[in-house]
Write a protein that binds this DNA or RNA. Sequence first.
DNA 1: ACCTGTCAAGTCTGG
DNA 2: CCAGACTTGACAGGT
Length: 332
Amino acid sequence: MIVRFGYVAMSVQLENASPSKTMTMRTFSRLANREAALRKLESIARENLRNTLRLLKHNRYMDVHVYRLTSKLIPLATHGDLADWDPYAPLADEFAEVGAFAKEHGIRLSFHPDHYTVLSTPRPEVYAASVKDLAHHVQMLEMMGLDERATCNIHVGGTYGDKKAAGRRFAEHFRRLEPRIARRITLENDDKTFSASETLDLCEQVGAPMVLDLHHHAVNNPDGVAPEAIWPRIRRTWDLRYGGALPPKIHASSPKSPSDPRGHADYVDPAPLVAFLIRIAEDTPAVDVMIEAKRKDESLLRLMDEMKRLEAAGAPLTVTGGASVEVYCKRS
DNA sequence: ACCTGTCAAGTCTGG
DNA sequence: CCAGACTTGACAGGT
């Protein structure tokens, strides 16, 4: 099984390469010349896209082929007071350049719209804002010229004291989305609300691939199911959508501390991750692993070093590149 | 150069 | 019904 590793949003190795520079509404509204302020927003976004391209070049150099784009590429993009502003057209070339580089070098890109996007909400205005945010992310992927393998990963959302009703509302809201948006959405199990089993049920209902977060599963697993026990169903959600043309994606991170088990640690403990990978290796041809750690790309490099050590110690894996590993199934 | 409070957005908890 | 926590990188305003 081929395993590729990736990281989120920014590098701790590249200097002055933030893809998430911003301007707050407070600052924007204090600027006297609104047109100039909008041009300023565009120039910040242009710089964010330029740094994103630098990050992709860095990824290629490190042999990293999985990367999550930051949602903050365009500051205030979906803010209600800026509804008359079209931030996309002026940035068309920059978006196209980022997408072209990713395609040329086979880098799998995704977004993770943050927790304000809540499809399980009972509030119409929150649902409308969520649709707007999803449309924004999908438009950016389209402007990059990326096909439906470039996705937006979200959580199911809040439960509002009645998880069953919230799940039904989620499915109903999901089915109302335009197909070009719905077909880009993946669902991730949550560390507090919808567990892996519950998220998987909804994925099967609405036809969305499921991103299994191993850390979230470790801290929110009410029915005590082993991740490899539900893995065949998770794989199927990907195969149904992509027919085997896109490996399933999982998230890996480690608890920050015993007192904050849900927080993300600086680095990733390889042991539970490798154990899981070995258990699914037999009937999974490929999987991509998004590393969510405070030390970003540095944690990825450290993880690969530890993989090499495990390989030397006889673990059933071979480090095949800067950020990829072949894992073999254990023969009993 | 460095420190601290704040930021567009939602939900949950506790008072 | 409302304040605060949650969580995160970066701004803004201060020293």
